[in-house]
Computed example of a mutant assay.
Amino acid sequence: MPEAEPAGAGADGTDTFPAVCAHTHLFPGARCRVQGLSDPGAFAADPSPLDVDLRFSDGVLTAAQLRTGTPAGAVLVVPAYTTAAGTSVDGRTWRVRELLRAGDEVEIAVAGLLSP
């Protein structure tokens, strides 16, 4: 089976895909929608590692990684960032509860923090 997303397949021609989040930070139950995937259904069914640019509701943008095949399953690795209001958010690794096709996007549903 071919890879779900070849290198350079991001919406802007890079290897990174935009992911829009409904809140200023992640928490258990939070959701982000990955945009620009060529076949969102195939990716949701059989995800592969992916670099994403998380865009939070306050406009803050931070690079993150969706990693697959870890002992915990799929995880979203988010580095430390600062919200638009000035709140520092530590870097964290989040377990992914599910990846769902949502039209032409893939929704990442966050389960909770991965224990260190």
Rank of each mutant, 00 (worst) to 15 (best):
M1D: 08
M1G: 15
M1L: 13
P2A: 15
P2V: 14
E3D: 13
A4Y: 00
E5I: 14
P6S: 15
P6H: 15
A7N: 07
A7E: 12
G8T: 04
G8H: 02
G8D: 02
A9R: 05
A9M: 09
A9I: 05
G10M: 01
A11C: 06
D12G: 03
D12R: 05
G13W: 01
G13E: 00
T14W: 00
T14M: 00
T14R: 03
D15N: 12
T16S: 11
F17H: 15
P18W: 00
P18D: 06
C21I: 11
C21E: 07
A22G: 15
A22S: 15
A22H: 12
H23R: 12
H23N: 10
H25C: 14
L26I: 07
L26T: 09
F27L: 04
F27D: 01
P28W: 00
P28G: 03
P28I: 04
G29I: 04
G29M: 03
A30H: 06
C32W: 04
C32V: 13
C32T: 14
R33W: 10
V34L: 09
V34E: 07
V34T: 06
L37H: 10
L37Q: 11
L37R: 10
S38I: 11
S38N: 13
D39A: 15
D39P: 10
P40M: 05
G41D: 09
F43Q: 06
F43T: 03
F43Y: 14
F43D: 09
A44L: 08
A44W: 05
A45H: 05
A45Y: 02
D46L: 07
D46F: 01
D46S: 09
P47D: 00
S48K: 04
P49I: 00
D51F: 01
D51T: 10
D51E: 13
V52N: 03
D53N: 10
R55Q: 09
F56L: 06
F56K: 03
D58P: 07
G59H: 01
G59D: 04
G59K: 00
V60T: 13
L61R: 11
T62F: 03
A64I: 08
Q65K: 12
R67N: 14
R67T: 13
T68Y: 02
T70H: 04
A72L: 07
A72T: 06
G73V: 01
G73I: 03
G73R: 00
A74H: 05
V75Y: 04
V78C: 11
A80T: 06
Y81A: 10
T82E: 13
T82S: 14
A85R: 04
A85G: 13
A85Q: 11
A85N: 10
G86Y: 05
V89W: 02
G91F: 02
G91Y: 00
R92M: 09
V96M: 00
R97C: 06
R97K: 10
R97N: 10
R97V: 06
R97W: 02
L99G: 12
R101Y: 06
A102M: 02
G103N: 04
D104P: 12
D104M: 12
V106H: 12
V106D: 12
E107F: 09
E107A: 15
E107K: 11
V110R: 05
G112N: 04
G112M: 01
S115T: 14
S115W: 09
P116I: 07
P116R: 13
P116Y: 11
